[in-house]
Design a protein around this nucleic acid. Structure first.
Lengths: 342, 342
DNA sequence: AAAAGATGTGGTAGCGCTACCACAAATGGC
DNA sequence: GCCATTTGTGGTAGCGCTACCACATCTTTT
């Protein structure tokens, strides 16, 4: 009475079909596919022939259920549209496209609570690895990360105390380097302009502050920030605010390149000469910084590489070869351009 | 000898635990969670109490295996970093965040072959719905989409013959409207500048051509394109190329806003007055078009809304209420700004 | 040469859930 | 009051795969 099979399934060949055709046990097929080294040359060839002939592809859901481990990388970023994180995701995606691993993407919207919620949801799937942006997880998030039992890579920053592995660069140093460059170029009343002051922006601000204080130039009225989401339009408004507060401003270090572009446009509008009257430095070095007129000095960060490196480390850990260097600093690079060339 | 349970699983409560605690059969728990209407009020409450107490959450993998249907939306876009598609994905993500559905993202890199490959991989998971960008699938891709047995939404365009459902707008009309605006404003030697000429860009170009021909202004030498990936830097180069070919150029319709921004910067560099000497129109209306100086006229498209609408239609179809209107045109809007205000 | 280990293969028993069917109880029609 | 229907619930049997153990067969050790 039991109908042969594929009562519910779409009639796709299963591992049992392959086993029958190859004249071996199902488990041997399973092994031949996952750990070819543990199956004899002969059988492996037979099995491969049967797989090819039937067009067999393992069912990822059955695999996940049986092995209590899904071939999924959980990826948590604060924004899907911010080009910076889009680049990181692209790096992750590209590095994973030849592997059996899929990506489960989560958008935290810069919210620690949302991150907690997503981490809980992700944990249900027993992912093979987790990649999360930042190092400022809530205590609960941190505990969740520590107890998932899978490799965890925090990305975008460096820091002393990773949950597991860490790939990024120092935002503090980036901010300081950018500011020092302005100082060295001869600017004195250098403002900081920033939107959406997330922890990374805060550290860039701290770097700015350190540089300014070291040069004896620090003045809190030089800082203009807002919690609003960053945009080019906002950059324009913030420069107006900054100039209203401090008309003698002669340079700005911008939180990111969108803001820097807005600042540049506002200078055009107000007929403020760049770099003569005001120098501008951005952060991240998006393509448009090079193309702008005048071109804009920026701190180049290696977002795509961060994604790739994170995957490389996670894959190594999955393969049992956890890299001895668990914190990788990919650094940054100050790209000097016309906006500070006076 | 059989150890109680959770030999491999991480000891998470299962549906059987809930059933035991609530004093009902496992299947009733399953039903209470999925189709509450089919379980009596009493049991439903009892079961809910047990679920809450144990902190039970269904295992998505087991579910997918048993029901031969994963709670996953497959989403295929040509680029992860292009802001346009990032916005669509964000709309999809936001609309799905309160549902049990996860997102499986695929990046086709503007390649039909890659799209085919990804579609085959996605089909293995028996997704609940598929959302794909564009209407120019290869014949094989189209067949795969038709035979998956799940709702399919094509997005970003309109067209006569959707696989299933379709949400977008007419790129042809967008290109024509932009060009007509330039013509009406008094520009005559209007160029088309475009990078990465994917099918949507081709249709915008066709719209441009139609408008130019209707006005008796068309000249093939006014068209400057490249298959290279679009960027602000490329916009600058392409304007230089266009001007070299056609020094009398007095307007440009740009394929997208990145190109338009590059064109604007090149005008600055070459001291070409905008809008007096050259008028510029972009496409998509990214935030920076409004903030630019001069601000840039652009064709606003509703990317985020496209994502939301696509999910709404897919969810309706999953619920058995396929919308009678299977093609939704969300239109576009010409935003007139300084770059064409002469 | 016997003992101890390594190697390769297969059988069994689930992983956690839902489809399918069975069946009791409640409802409705005449 | 009987039969037909509806409603609610549960048992059974998988979904397709892999962990675990068993067990031959082949090596290596002493």
């Amino acid at each position: 009475m039991t109908r042969p099979r594929s009562r519910r399934g779409g009639g796709r060949p299963t591992i049992a079909d392959v086993a029958r055709k190859a004249g071996v046990g199902a488990i041997t097929v399973s092994r031949a596919l996952r750990e070819p080294g543990r199956v004899s040359e002969d059988l492996r060839r037979q099995i491969q022939a049967a797989v090819d002939e039937l067009g067999y592809v393992p069912d990822p859901n059955a695999r996940a259920l049986a092995s209590a481990r899904a071939e999924v990388f959980g990826v948590l970023v604060p924004s899907l549209t911010n080009n910076v994180f889009a680049e990181v995701v692209r790096g992750i995606y590209d590095s994973l496209s030849d592997s059996p691993f899929r990506i489960q993407l989560g958008n935290t919207h810069y919210s620690g609570l949302e991150e907690e919620r997503l981490l809980q949801v992700f944990a249900l799937q027993r992912p093979a690895a987790l990649i999360v942006a930042g190092i400022d997880q809530t205590p609960l998030s941190r505990k969740l990360l520590e107890t998932t039992g899978c490799p965890v890579v925090q990305v975008m920053e460096t820091g002393p105390d990773p949950v597991d592995m860490l790939v990024g660069f120092s935002h503090f140093d980036g901010g300081r380097t950018a500011t020092e460059h302005l100082i060295e170029t001869g600017y004195r009343r250098i403002g900081f302009i920033g939107a959406r002051m997330d922890p990374r922006s805060q550290r860039r601000l701290a770097g700015y502050r350190a540089a300014m204080q070291a040069a004896g130039l620090f003045d809190p009225r030089l800082i203009t920030t807002t919690p609003l989401l960053s945009s080019v339009t906002l950059g324009r408004e913030l420069l107006r605010d900054a100039l209203a507060k401090m008309p003698s401003l002669d340079g700005v270090f911008c939180n990111n390149d969108d803001i820097a572009l807005g600042v540049l446009f506002e200078c055009h509008r107000a007929a403020i000469a760049v770099p003569e009257t005001i120098g501008i430095v951005g952060f991240n070095d998006l393509d448009m910084m090079q193309a702008a007129f005048p071109s804009v000095t920026s701190v180049r960060t290696h977002r795509y590489e961060i994604g790739r490196q994170a995957v490389a480390m996670a894959l190594a850990a999955i393969a049992g070869q956890r890299p001895q260097q668990r914190v990788v600093d990919l650094g940054f690079e100050l790209i000097r351009r016309e906006s500070t060339a006076r």
